[in-house]
Design a protein around this nucleic acid. Structure first.
Lengths: 169, 169
DNA sequence: CGTTTGAGTTTACTTTCAGAGACTCAGCGA
DNA sequence: TCGCTGAGTCTCTGAAAGTAAACTCAAACG
C-alpha cells in the first residue's frame, strides 16, 4: 500500500474515490498566470521593462490584452503601479514587480531551464541567469528540508490538510 | 553600466535596440505546455493516472481537447504510450511520463509552491510533496553553481550565445 | 490653439475553447 | 454473431480569447 492510500485510510477517506481537484495549487496558480501573454509580461519586467509602450513594442501583443493582463497582475498584487515622469512630458504610470511577483521566479526559471535544455538554438540559450555577486550560473533545483538535492522521481505526493475526495455525484 | 549592456558592447551589438524575443526559452516551453489542460494532464500523470478515461473523469475536460493535448505531449516526447491489458478486455494504450517530462517537475513545483503560499485554502495545501526516502518536505530553490541558495533579486540576466537584437524593421 | 504622445478603450472580425451528443472501431465474452 | 467497453473521432452551438485598427483623453510643447 502506498503512502497516499495509507494516509487516506488514517483520515477515514475512501481511497477509491477521486481526489477533489478544485483546490489544487497548480490550477489556482494557472488561473492567475496561465493566460497567454501573462508570463511573457513578467519576463519583460524581469528583463527591465516597466512601461505600457515597452511591453507592447517588445512583445508585439495587442494593446487591449496587454491592458487586461496588466490590470489582472496589479489586482493580484504581482505587479504594482508607480508614476514616472520624463522631463517635458506629463507623469504616467509604470509597472514594478512586488515580492509576491518575485516569488514566481522559481516557477518561471523552471520553464526557462526546460526550454534551454530541450528547445534552445544550436548555439545555446538566448539569455543566461547568473548570481549578481559571484557571477556563477544559477538554476532551479528541488531540495528537501535538510537541503539535500532530490530527484524528481524520488518525490512522493501525499494528501495535505486541505485534501478532499469528490463525492460520487 | 550594467552587465547586460557591457556584454552587448563586447559583441558589437547596439544595446539601444530591442532584444529579439523569438528564441526565448520561456516562450518556447510555453508553446508546448502553455495551453489550457496540458499542465493539469501532467499533474494527473504525476499523481498516478495513465488512462484516457481517468484523465477525462478527474479533470472533467472535453474528450476532443484531451485527445489533442495527449497527442501533442506524445509528439513532444513528454509522454509516451504503452499498452496495458485488463484481464478479459483487449489491450489499450496508456500514457506514461518520459524523462523529458520529468524534467518539467521543477517548473510545475514552482507553480505549486506559489499557489500553496498565496492561494491555498485556510487549512493549507491539498497535496504535500515529500522526499520518498526520508519523508521530509521538498521545495524548489534557486542555487548557484557552488550550491549556495540565491534570492530571486540577486539573479542577473545576461545575453547568452544565441542572443540577438531585433533589426529596426 | 493646434499638435504630439503615452496609455489606454472600443469596435469589428477571426480563431479557439467549452460542452454535449452521436458515432466508430477492435477485440472479448456469452 | 451480438452486445459491451475503452478510447477515441466528428459535428454542432455558444462563449471566450485573440487580433487589428480606429478612436479617446489629458497634459505638454510650439
Amino acid at each position: 500500500m502506498d503512502a497516499w492510500t495509507e494516509l487516506l485510510q488514517d483520515t477515514g477517506m475512501d481511497p477509491r474515490l477521486d481526489r477533489d481537484t478544485s483546490n489544487c495549487s497548480i490550477a489556482r496558480t494557472l488561473e492567475v498566470v496561465g493566460e497567454k501573454w501573462t508570463i511573457l509580461i513578467l519576463r519583460e519586467v524581469w528583463y527591465g521593462s516597466s512601461r505600457f509602450s515597452e511591453f507592447e513594442r517588445v512583445l508585439g501583443c495587442p494593446r487591449n490584452l496587454l491592458a487586461a493582463r496588466l490590470r489582472m497582475l496589479v489586482e493580484e498584487g504581482i505587479l504594482a503601479t508607480e508614476t514616472y515622469k520624463e522631463p517635458g512630458s506629463r507623469s504616467r504610470p509604470k509597472y514594478v514587480i512586488t515580492s509576491k511577483g518575485m516569488d514566481l521566479v522559481p516557477a518561471v526559471m523552471g520553464l526557462l531551464q526546460w526550454g534551454d535544455r530541450y528547445r534552445a538554438d544550436p548555439e545555446g540559450p538566448a539569455v543566461l541567469a547568473r548570481h549578481r555577486e559571484c557571477g556563477a550560473h544559477v538554476d532551479v533545483q528541488i531540495r528537501c528540508e535538510q537541503g539535500h538535492p532530490v530527484q524528481a522521481k524520488d518525490i512522493e505526493s501525499v494528501p495535505g490538510p486541505a485534501f478532499r475526495v469528490r463525492s460520487p455525484e
